[in-house]
């Protein structure tokens, strides 16, 4: 997760208009879910990978590793759809008899599973594109523009900032404990971990009080007002994104029609 954050800042696309990137990834995501077609999903995965790696300057190996993360969830989820139990073994393409029950996969089941697998992968690649090219702060400014309640956006911003603070603290405490043999045995590890958890909680509480004092001293009045970064809004780029989405929708419809005709 921390690496995603780092790459978002150093991405070549991080300076681009965040609203544009948000529009691009969210509409593509929408089309991916709506089209429900394996070729379209695959095309979207390829395009998003190209945009993140070639346009964003992300190392390809890192991108592959990231794509492997949802894989285990996906495979588990998809298996439950592909593998069915039935009393009529003749429907199965592949089957196995176990204690008088037939377990196997049907053609339609496999097709649904494959469709779902690639649809989910396409959706993940859209979200990856957004999170790998857009720093959290920029995302928050998009949310603010979309009229998400201020309180929620402010909280998200503070939570984001505090993740790093607490992680640093936890890291420091872990090192200090490890250097005093806090993790040599299993029971010692549990004890040390409990120590970290409780003192992190107390320190986080103390931090909020300090932060509140610091905010107050700078005239905090219950709402966090900050300057938004200015971005060059290019109508031309918006037009390209809209054209891309329209093209995707058309392609999906044509594909659907031709396949329907074939059937």
């Amino acid at each position: 997760m921390i690496y995603i954050d780092k790459y978002a800042y150093i991405s070549k696309l991080s300076g681009e208009d965040p609203a544009l990137k948000f529009l691009f990834s969210s509409t593509t995501l929408g089309v991916c879910l709506w089209a429900d077609s394996i070729p379209i999903s695959l095309f979207i995965v390829a395009c998003m990978a190209w945009a993140s790696v070639r346009k964003g300057g992300l190392p390809f190996r890192f991108y592959c590793k990231l794509m492997l993360i949802p894989m285990s969830f996906l495979i588990m989820g998809v298996l439950t759809i592909a593998v069915q139990v039935s009393a009529r073994p003749e429907e199965f393409l592949l089957s196995y008899r176990l204690l008088g029950i037939t377990v196997g996969a049907t053609g339609i089941g496999l097709q649904t599973a494959a469709g779902l697998f690639f649809k989910a992968l396409g959706a993940v690649s859209c979200l990856y594109f957004l999170s790998l090219t857009t720093p959290m702060i920029e995302m928050l400014s998009v949310l603010r523009k979309l009229k998400v309640p201020r309180l929620m956006v402010e909280l998200m911003g503070l939570v984001y900032r505090f993740i790093f603070l607490l992680m640093d603290m936890a890291d420091g405490m872990y090192t200090a404990q490890a250097s005093r043999l806090g993790y040599t045995t299993l029971s010692a590890s549990y004890r040390s971990l409990a120590g970290i958890a409780s003192s992190l909680f107390i320190r986080a509480y103390k931090r909020t009080q300090d932060l509140y004092a610091a905010l107050e001293s700078r005239g905090y009045d219950g709402e966090i007002h900050v300057l938004e970064r200015r971005h060059d809004v290019s109508p031309w780029k918006y037009a390209v994104v809209i054209a891309w989405v329209c093209a995707l929708i058309t392609a999906a419809m044509v594909l659907d029609h031709s396949m329907g005709g074939a059937r």
Partner: peptide
């Protein structure tokens, strides 16, 4: 204890915005 924002630019702007 003082820095509340993840962005330097927004952090510095806070006091002046207030």
């Amino acid at each position: 204890a003082q820095l509340f924002s993840a962005s330097v630019h927004q952090e510095v702007s806070f006091g002046a915005m207030n």
